[in-house]
Amino acid sequence: MPDVTVRVNGEAVRLPGGSTVAAALLNAGVHCRTSVNGEPRTALCGMGICLECRATVDGQPHQRTCQLVCRDGMSVETGS
């Protein structure tokens, strides 16, 4: 599969086709969500159970990024 490029908080991240959005966030080194008390959190379980990897994808909030495959041009906003 050819590489795909997604935008993570405006920055371009390139990764192998078929990669998850969570992998794009991890490779970019950004955290996914901010906890109730303001702590940064990243993806934990990798299988759609813990919901720690939530981010806004193409304007849709609270998406489980570990269960979403990257599409070229996708836009991801984190930290909410």
Binding site: L15, S19, A23, A24, L26, C45, G46, M47, C66
Partner: peptide, 15 residues
């Protein structure tokens, strides 16, 4: 991460 968790992320493209 979880143990299977980290493996899943690597399989998902985490370098």
């Amino acid at each position: 991460f979880g143990v299977g968790g980290l493996q899943a992320h690597v399989r998902g493209g985490y370098d």
